[in-house]
């Protein structure tokens, strides 16, 4: 599948944004983080900025972005519409919780409930994002049980790295934040390793024989394309650039997204809060690169059933 940069930015930025907002909401409502104006402004502000940047970016790959509001109507059948509805609905508890924290310095009582609702809506929205991909039966690399957990854990893990950095900058860092990030990163690595293993070993669901129904006569081979130039289907579904470097890019993603941040945060845990700021910033930069590579691979390594007709495997 063609990895559109707008969709990579959308899924990674909104994932990290919702992860950060959910963690801030839980720790804020639980009283673990102080209801300090600037901490709330920077933390919730960054989470919102990532979410909004992601959502706006997703409209850039539309052919008619001026009609984007129509995409909220078909939530009964479409995960993309559900994602849009959930994202908009999530702004309500985020706004209430943010106002309580930033302007009233209060994250308790009703604001704590808004915090709980923020965490739930962030979870629901990321689930919907993942299901847009996981529900497509045409792409076996997405239509599996690991796509949803990967989106959830990667969103939370990148959000947790941001939480470590922000809390360290404001002097409210706790080792529990880094521990949480380390656990989520380890879990994320395990999920992605299992995912890569699965897509490498799974057999194609369809072949040119079943696609044409001609397997009854023996082996089927493409003799002539319908045309000499690449059409929309081949450009959108037949992206093959990444396959050449997939192995190396997987190593880059595994190191930059998981291993390096995990080591940095473990070092912060071992050395105490003094190193948390530096380790948090370095881990954020590394994970930012890593998650972009991971998401790029998620698209580029995905093969689409329609390309079977063009002589490819899927």
């Amino acid at each position: 599948m063609h990895p559109a940069y707008s969709v990579i930015l959308f899924t990674t930025a909104s994932g990290a944004g919702y992860g950060l907002l959910a963690l801030l909401a839980v720790f804020g409502a639980a009283g673990v983080l102080p209801a300090n104006t600037w901490l709330g402004f920077v933390g919730i502000g960054l989470g919102l900025a990532l979410v909004v940047a992601g959502l706006l970016s997703s409209t850039f790959h539309l052919g008619r972005p001026e009609r984007a509001a129509r995409a909220f109507t078909q939530w009964r059948s479409s995960w993309l519409a559900r994602e849009g509805v959930a994202a908009i609905a999530a702004f309500a508890p985020i706004a209430i919780f943010g106002i309580g924290w930033v302007f009233l310095n209060d994250t308790s009582g009703p604001f704590a409930w808004a915090g709980a609702a923020t965490a739930v809506m962030a979870f629901v929205t990321v689930c919907c994002t993942a299901m847009i991909y996981a529900s497509l039966k045409t792409i076996r690399q997405w239509n599996n049980a690991l796509t949803l957990p990967a989106y959830l854990v990667l969103g939370l893990a990148t959000g947790a790295i941001l939480l470590v950095t922000i809390s360290a900058l404001f002097g409210v860092y706790r080792p529990a934040f880094a521990t949480l990030a380390v656990v989520l990163l380890a879990l994320g690595l395990a999920i992605k390793l299992a995912y890569w293993r699965q897509i490498d070993t799974e057999r194609p669901r369809s072949t040119l024989g079943t696609a044409t129904g001609l397997d009854r006569f023996g082996e089927v081979r493409l003799l002539e394309m319908p045309h000499t130039e690449e059409n929309f289907i081949m450009r959108e579904m037949g992206y093959a650039v990444a396959r050449k470097h997939a192995r190396r890019l997987r190593i880059v993603a595994a190191l930059a997204l998981f291993v390096v941040p995990l080591a940095l945060l473990a070092l912060a845990l071992w050395s105490g809060p003094s190193l948390a700021i530096a380790m948090g910033i370095l881990a954020t930069l590394s994970a930012g690169v890593g998650v972009a590579v991971e998401r790029w691979l998620f698209f580029a390594e995905a093969t689409h059933a329609s390309m079977i007709y063009y002589g490819r495997t899927a």
Binding site: M1, H61, L62, G63, R64, P65, R67, A68, R70, A71, S78, L80, I132, L136, K137, T138, I139, S206, N231, F232, I233, E236, M237, H304, A305, S306, M307, Y309
Partner: peptide
């Protein structure tokens, strides 16, 4: 008149039957 050109329908079709009109911006 309602299509926003998100191309998700073309991703969902295993037969490659839906095509994007890049000039009009719809499927």
């Amino acid at each position: 008149d309602k299509c926003i050109g998100c191309k998700l329908c073309s991703w969902a079709c295993p037969y490659g039957a839906r095509e994007y009109d890049e000039d009009v911006g719809v499927m």
